[in-house]
């Protein structure tokens, strides 16, 4: 969605499309975040079973920021480019995401003000466990603030 969409009413829950976070997606994400690659990849909790176990995980885990990216993308998709002109997002990474899990972004409208809409946001895995939780603020589109 390129234009700013009307903001939904308070209490409304929005749900994104499920995203399967497999190793292939994780590798694609890792390859995409640095262009050109500026650091040498090294064993980490994201790609090395031993490093993951040392850190207390049963297997390598996905980067939390990949889940965070899903939320940010969802907010742009749902509310338009206005999110990139004054939007805010804050989140805590609650649980590790293991490769093969299916993630879904959720958002619930907490308040609609003249200048912004406030949302609770979270990401669930296929067991409906929250792996990320936080809040977001989306600036009101110009036509909305004029009408408010």
């Amino acid at each position: 969605m390129n234009v700013s969409a009307p903001h939904p009413e308070v209490g409304r829950e929005l749900v994104g499309e499920p995203y399967a976070l497999n190793e292939a997606e994780a590798h694609a994400y890792a390859a995409a975040i640095e262009r050109p690659a500026e650091r040498h990849p090294r064993p980490s909790i994201h790609n090395d079973p031993q490093a993951a176990r040392k850190a207390g995980f049963r297997a390598p885990i996905a980067a939390g920021e990949q889940s965070y990216a899903l939320v940010a993308n969802f907010l742009v998709d749902r509310f338009g480019v206005c999110f990139l002109h004054g939007g805010k997002l804050e989140a805590i990474f609650l649980k590790p995401v293991f490769y093969g899990q299916r993630l879904t972004v959720h958002a619930r409208v907490l308040a609609r003000g003249r200048s912004a809409t406030e949302l609770e946001v979270w990401v669930e895995n296929e067991d409906c466990d929250r792996v990320l939780t936080g809040k977001a603020s989306v600036p009101a589109a110009e036509h909305e603030s004029e009408l408010a």
Partner: peptide, 24 residues
Amino acid sequence: AFARATANANPLYTSPSERIAPPT
């Protein structure tokens, strides 16, 4: 690459008239 990796097809990231970067 980033849009592909996050399964995002928003034309904001691909349209020649837009070409902005995904937020994160």
